[in-house]
Design a protein around this nucleic acid. Structure first.
Length: 489
RNA sequence: GGCGCCAUAGCCAAGCGGUAAGGCACGGGUCUGCAAAACCCUGAUCGGCGGUUCGAAUCCGCCUGGCGCCUCCA
């Protein structure tokens, strides 16, 4: 590593970061509870089905935020949960005729595999709701003691009217919520908006013992409990998709603040925009989703990350096959600029007199570094940061063509690779699906072809290139000979 | 019905008061036996109508179109 792209670990540097807070609806200076440490809780998934592009967007958005904070010298304690018990899990398990935990184990494993495939840094811990029943029950008991919750027939509900700040995150009034009239009236509840903390088990359902009888946690409480267990009381960042603002995060605030007696529960509420498929939100309920697996299996994981980076994390992302392929092309150009292979293979001759240009490029790299950090400091504006990297890449490629000496572009390449790395882009190690089995034969074919080219037998030479092309092998002739790459997709 | 968001070139997408980043595609070049890649050149006044301002894509109002949340959801 070079010193390029790193930041001083001083408080001055980190205080330049501004983060948009859903709670205040504005960008705020980022100041952590404890200097140098970020306590971050990001809502994970309910593992009852395969992850789709929307989950990937959230995963990447927070991975990028985390990487940048670490780059700025913070230690990030990152907790991501699995809500591995709820109605959908039970329903799906019943359909498949397996136990709920067998189902969730499968999808959690899948999630972890895909997370790795997308080059997402592993969270510090991945707690599961079913492993945290003790803390959950304790929290519910405490809420009852304090008058914030009440038990009815084995269920326990949070008394929304007991928490004055209810609605502050999603900026709603209780009465406005009621007018929505989409809530089933349950006569047993004090208020229709009261939500379940604990649900009595129905026959055949998974259950745990509790002071209110056998049952399971309701949605929302598990996150409050896990956050408290793994991060202590107040935390710095609580994240998730924009669709979690209400009711999930609103309810979490009510539970956690009522429980902790501390406000705010999370200093920064960060929400990523939702992925759209055409005009609509992509979701399982709409059935218009693309599975993450499809993208990863096609070797387009890094391209997907670039696609996500090209739009702001808070803005909705319009997903399309075209956009994904466009990102793949862009990624290839960044990698070309970052890589040393091409220049060596091309065997450009050293030229003197490139000094001034080299100085220009070095200077440009410094400016890029500045622009990159300014963009990322401003609420993680990755599209702007990435734009700077693309311009640097063009400058490098231009320089390479003009001067052709590796030494002249190496420092700029180091900057490009370092900054790309901050965004989780591995520009040096393309995820080539190296066909080790076929490689010797392809090399042999190209050697023969080279001989044909020497004899100017273009027809046969082109035939080999075309045929290889139809076999997903792209052949490119350079000044130093032919190169080949295996196409993906 | 309530709350909120968005509308920028063919597509994706930044900018959010000082006169439009970037990516992909298209077209024209350079290079190449040809091709590919790379590089160079080329394209928008920012949904519509008013208003505020010396100045607005950026602020305010109205209109049109679309989306999200209010029910499971990253």
């Amino acid at each position: 590593m070079t010193s390029t792209g790193t930041r001083p670990e001083s408080a001055h540097a980190v205080e330049e970061i501004r983060v948009y807070n859903t709670l205040s609806r504005r960008k705020e200076p980022f100041v952590t509870i404890e200097r140098g440490l970020v306590r971050m809780y990001v809502c994970g998934v309910t593992p009852y089905d395969s992850a789709h592009v929307g989950h990937g967007m959230s995963l990447l958005a927070f991975d990028i935020i985390r990487r940048y904070l670490e780059h700025c010298g913070y230690q990030v304690r990152h907790i991501q949960n699995f809500t591995d018990i709820d109605d959908k899990i039970i329903a799906r398990a019943n359909v498949e005729g397996i136990a709920p935990d067998a189902l969730t184990t499968r999808f959690i494993a899948e999630w972890e595999t895909q997370s790795r495939a997308l080059n997402v840094l592993p969270a510090t811990q991945y707690p599961r709701a079913t492993d945290e029943i003790g803390p959950i029950v304790a929290m519910v008991e405490r809420l009852i003691e304090r008058g914030h919750a009440y038990a009815v027939d084995g269920d326990v509900y949070f008394r929304v009217r007991s928490f004055p700040g209810y609605g502050k995150l999603s900026h709603r009034e209780l009465d406005d919520l009621l007018s929505g009239a989409r809530i089933e009236i349950d006569e047993r509840k004090d208020d229709p908006l009261d939500f379940a903390l604990w649900k009595a088990a129905k026959p055949g359902e998974p259950h745990w013992d509790s002071p209110w009888g056998p049952g399971r946690p309701g949605w929302h409480i598990e996150c409050s409990a896990m956050s408290s267990t793994y991060l202590g009381g107040q935390i710095d960042i609580h994240g998730g998709g924009a669709d979690l603002v209400f009711p999930h995060h609103e309810n979490e605030i009510a539970q956690s603040e009522a429980f902790l007696g501390v406000e705010p529960f999370a200093r920064y509420w960060v929400h990523n925009g939702l992925v759209r498929s055409g005009a609509d939100k992509m979701s399982k309920s709409l059935g218009n989703f693309v599975r993450l697996k499809e993208i990863i299996d096609r070797g387009l994981g890094a391209a997907f990350r670039l696609m996500v980076l090209q739009s702001h994390y808070r803005a909705p992302l319009t997903y399309s096959e075209d956009a994904l392929l466009a990102a793949e092309r862009g990624l290839a150009r960044l990698r070309l600029a970052a890589g040393a292979d091409a220049i060596e293979a091309a065997g450009f001759e050293e030229e003197s007199g490139g000094t001034i240009r080299v100085a220009d490029l070095a200077h440009f790299a410094e400016e890029t570094d500045c622009r990159f950090h300014e963009a990322m400091d401003d609420d993680f504006n990755a599209p702007e940061a990435l734009a700077a990297l693309f311009e640097l890449a063009r400058a490098i490629n231009r320089e390479r063509g003009a001067v052709g000496s590796f030494e002249s572009i190496e420092p700029a390449q180091a900057t490009l690779v370092a900054l790309g790395g901050v965004l989780g882009l591995e520009l040096e190690n393309p995820e080539t699906t190296t066909a080790v089995d076929a490689a010797p034969f392809i090399d042999l074919l190209l050697r023969v072809r080279e001989d044909l080219r020497q004899r100017r037998e273009w027809a046969l030479s082109d035939l080999i290139r075309d045929e290889l092309g139809s076999l997903e092998v792209t052949v490119e002739d350079t000044a130093a000979g032919a190169t080949w790459t295996l196409r993906r997709g």
